[in-house]
Design a protein around this nucleic acid. Structure first.
Lengths: 186, 186, 186, 186
DNA sequence: TATGAATGAGAATTCATTCAT
DNA sequence: TATGAATGAATTCTCATTCAT
């Protein structure tokens, strides 16, 4: 039922998704929903947090290597795109599903954006330490990259066959990041 | 009443905003709403399109000069940030208000994203023509810049006093765009 | 609609009475209910308090004369029985409708019982002052009379034609009160 | 489980008490409830009747002595108050728990009130036979005493420590009954 | 005997929309 | 033009009851 819920929430967003939609997608009765979850909001928050944690951890781990900044971004973007292609609902839930919902959600969403920005900022800080990129407002660069990656991925998902263009997308985004940070190598 | 509607839709999003909210904010009766607009959805779509047109035109005009690409982006981003600071409702309506709403909206929203991407892509195409930026997937760069700008602006609006940081934000985004496109001047 | 609500609440009690029952009895739509009242509980509390005030005031005024205690009780019991016969819903609402309901109600109910007891206690206190009744625990006598009168009235309302026996009931209850207080006259 | 049910029904009343409340209080599963009882209503009616029988029998036996009317009432009221103090759930179930519930209950409740009235009426009839009390509408006196006793006992149970005031209450009620029946002794 | 996951009818409440004035 | 009382479909959530294990 949780898979069905993720799918429905991803498709319609929190407000438009009804409990009936979810249980119908899961093939169970309404009562069953309330047997497992206290209410719609709690489930959504739970799903949102769990999904956010998964995404942040996956991207974060890809960035943990000692490789160069380009390699780090490439690896992490590859992981991100893979999730988008094979589990698009996850991306849609995080990037679309929780917008304009209840206040409790708005807060979670803001926290997720913040953590995501900080994840993408890490390679920047390391590269700055090693003097491999130009001096810049690294926080703002991180914000910009965060928005850039998400937008490109959402555009990728709009295509009829996202998988086909996945590796190109990773390549383009990596190059974009290298340029945008003025990476000058070792 | 339309101003009130923009404000309410921007604050709460399409779903959460009720017709009652809007008419109360406008100081009229519910019946008056339905005298002027056929229904809530039509009004929202109308407002969304009108607002999108305004934003696209404002940004587009700022890009129409014969100036260099950096100057173009700087001017346009300045206009964008000004709107965000002085009419935050417009930005919130476009970037947040219409997410996860009715299908008819989703379509308009997609069209707006597409047009916005094409607007930001124009300086790129001109610069490529003049061989002022490196060869690149300019469509994807445009998508990335579109997402980058929006994310930075939404972060700006989260600050207690967005106006204070406005010019810095314009500067940072402009530099980001210059780097991200590998602009090498004339 | 309020009359219909009193009737339904009196018939079924707070819990068993549904909003649908009420609006059907009133011949309006469900939405109309919520146009006039914020929710079922608020309406019930309002009705309960208003009805309690009415009953207490009616009985209280009947006791306000300078007459002798028997005359006071007779007049007040006559008023009480009249309400029971001509507006049985009022009595049922107060004595039955609010039992075992929400906590907010339980409190109102307790307050009503307390006030009713105090009303019936007043003639006792005056008579004690004038040394017309034997020394006794007047508070407890008042409680007992309160319960006694209510029980007799509820039994009266169970009869096929309560009106027929009304004056006898008033007489019997008055005599009961005279005996129970050991009234010895002037 | 039946003890738990009595306690829960007494606390919350028939409507508000859920089967889940009962099985949780009893430490068994929901299925177990339906293995032993056909449904909630049947259990309640059964419990109500059983409890009513117990109370009526206890009071009835206390009245069966050949003692004088005052002694009879004193003994029976003592038994009644003892039950109230040591098993308040029994009193609450009978006097409150079943109000405003299902129709089947209303009937049982009416039957219980009728039997209780008849029990309290018995000493009156004997005393009338022996010419020890004044001529009066003995049925109505019995109703009044029934209501009086219940009201006083419910007030007793509202006190923080009902046991403390128990013997006073028995004394006061006995005196009340003696006065109310105009008992003149042998 | 005992369990507890699963069910779905029914209850309260919301809100877009209509229409007589 | 403007009003706002009235509507009822749709939504969330509860809870008595069933049944396979």
């Amino acid at each position: 039922m949780m898979q069905a819920a993720v799918r429905i929430f991803a498709e319609k967003g929190y407000q438009a998704a009804t409990v009936r939609d979810i249980v119908e997608a899961a093939g169970v009765a309404i009562g069953t929903f309330y047997f497992y979850f206290p209410d719609k909001e709690t489930l959504f928050v739970h799903l949102y947090e769990e999904t956010a944690d998964f995404l942040l951890q996956t991207i974060g781990q890809s960035l943990n290597s000692r490789a160069t900044m380009p390699k780090q971004y490439q690896t992490a973007l590859n992981a991100y795109v893979n999730i988008a292609v094979y589990e698009p609902a996850i991306i849609q839930l995080l990037l679309i599903g929780g917008v304009g919902a209840v206040p409790a959600l708005e807060e979670k969403r803001a926290a997720f954006r913040e953590r995501l920005t900080q994840v993408w900022q890490r390679p920047l800080l390391q590269a700055l330490d090693k003097n491999q990129i130009a001096a810049q407002n690294d926080r703002r660069t991180a914000e910009a990259l965060t928005g850039a990656f998400d937008e490109v991925i959402l555009n990728l998902l709009k295509q009829p066959d996202p998988g086909e263009d996945a590796s190109n997308t990773v390549h383009d985004m990596t190059q974009f990041a290298i340029r945008a940070t003025a990476y000058r190598g070792e």
